[in-house]
Design a protein around this nucleic acid. Structure first.
Lengths: 237, 237
DNA sequence: AGAAGTTTCTAGAGTCATTAAGCAAACATA
DNA sequence: TATGTTTGCTTAATGACTCTAGAAACTTCT
């Protein structure tokens, strides 16, 4: 942690900012997305409407800030799960990360929905937005783990040339931005796994599979089993 | 088509309803979700605010109605794609259906987002809601095709007992509601494929993979290739 | 204590969803 | 043709919302 810089004023301001974010989150989880209004949040922290504009320039900014918080919380949970299995086999670490992700998602469905199952507002699509930063850190948790796994023992990937050339080109470009730790084909496998986990979790928090499943836990585990298989890892509950 | 039942009044009413839905959709696609307000829609069709309550009991009802429209449009497009390959090989039909789905999604990202990437409001979760009906019809397009495929030539499925017992139980319950055309393990494969397509399309319309891909078409095709492989079908572009 | 800066307030303009009251035309019936 | 009902809309009004513009109060520093 950085030393608590700043004088009393700054500390107070930080505390208020924190309180506002907490209030916003509480409103989201207890009364839904719609309930997170500037007025309601202000009421909750005991100040009146317009005062909140000294802390956030608009409702969108507030929403963006708490969304970034959620993103960071999820990432920290995944990192903690990973660091809970130091030195152990890759499979265990990766499974722990994925399960931590679902754990957080099911415990915080509204928050997960805000991160992943909502259109990203234009202001948050800029590279310097807090959300984007948080997204990159999140991305790195999974990618680092897969890269480590690849370096330790490469998993089977499609042969070069087997993938569509246009796809390969895009993958190559992205692989470069990853310092070339993974070849394009391995990046594809990685993104494909991520997309499966993403889809399943979105379906769970959005209740898109309620027509078939009442408990998604074993469905997710089965998906993990398949992911492990694809990465050449042993699966264990 | 059913004969245009009803007298002049009813016809006029239906036309107005249609006009309102069209206006709502136009606002969604051109100015985003937020812009679909009762007032704005009413302004668009040339009547003033409250008059709209003679046609829809609330904003939510209006949103639900147009969402159901979208669902139906998507389904019809998929059915048309399927019927464009009558009698042909299963693989071609299934691929055509999936590509039609993505085609509609990419042409109508906002509409697709409303159907699949938004929390389903409680009112629309009831069995008798238009949305639920539309959802079932959509579901059937994919399921029917997979069931036909299964009856013609079963694809490889996990051996009974290989899947988690709790998962099996849920699958068995759902399989029964499908008239037992598919065994639980095949239902699982089917739902797993659906979840992959769903995840990928959501990521595309929500721009969740922009950090890696600029063109999702080959990514989707690669996913289709894998789906085909799993269903024992030949893949062709 | 006084100056400077920060925080919060009240007031208000303009938006939204929704309800209520009422007007006028279209229609059905006598 | 006269009467009453139904239908389609209007305006008015309520209470919520976002956000702006000043004035008031409070902190901190000199």
């Amino acid at each position: 942690m950085a030393a608590q810089t700043g004088n009393r004023r700054e500390r107070l301001r930080r505390a208020t900012l924190e309180e506002i974010r907490t209030a916003a989150r509480l409103l989201l989880t207890s009364h839904g997305s719609e309930a997170v209004t500037i007025n309601a949040v202000a009421r909750e922290v005991g100040m009146s409407g317009p005062a909140l504009y000294h802390y956030f320039s608009s409702r969108e900014a507030l929403v963006g800030a708490v969304t970034a918080d959620f993103f960071q919380e999820l990432t920290e949970r995944m990192e903690a799960a990973r660091d809970g299995h130091p030195g152990g086999p890759s499979a265990q670490r990766l499974l722990a990360i994925c399960r931590a992700m679902r754990g957080w998602a099911t415990e915080h469905p509204a928050e997960f929905g805000w991160i992943f199952a909502s259109p990203i507002p234009p202001s948050d699509r800029r590279e310097d937005s807090a959300r984007h930063q948080a997204g990159q850190r999140f991305e790195r948790v999974l990618l680092d783990e897969v890269a480590a796994l690849w370096e330790a023992r490469p998993f089977p990937v499609p042969a070069p040339g087997e993938l569509d050339p246009s796809l390969c080109e895009q993958l190559a470009a992205y692989a470069i931005s990853l310092d070339g730790r993974l070849p394009p084909e391995a990046v594809h496998v990685c993104l494909s796994c991520w997309s499966r986990l993403y889809g399943l979790l979105c379906m769970e928090v959005l209740h898109q599979l309620d027509f078939a499943y009442t408990d998604m836990e074993p469905v997710f585990e089965e998906c993990l089993r398949e992911v492990c298989e694809r990465l050449g890892l042993p699966y264990a509950r």
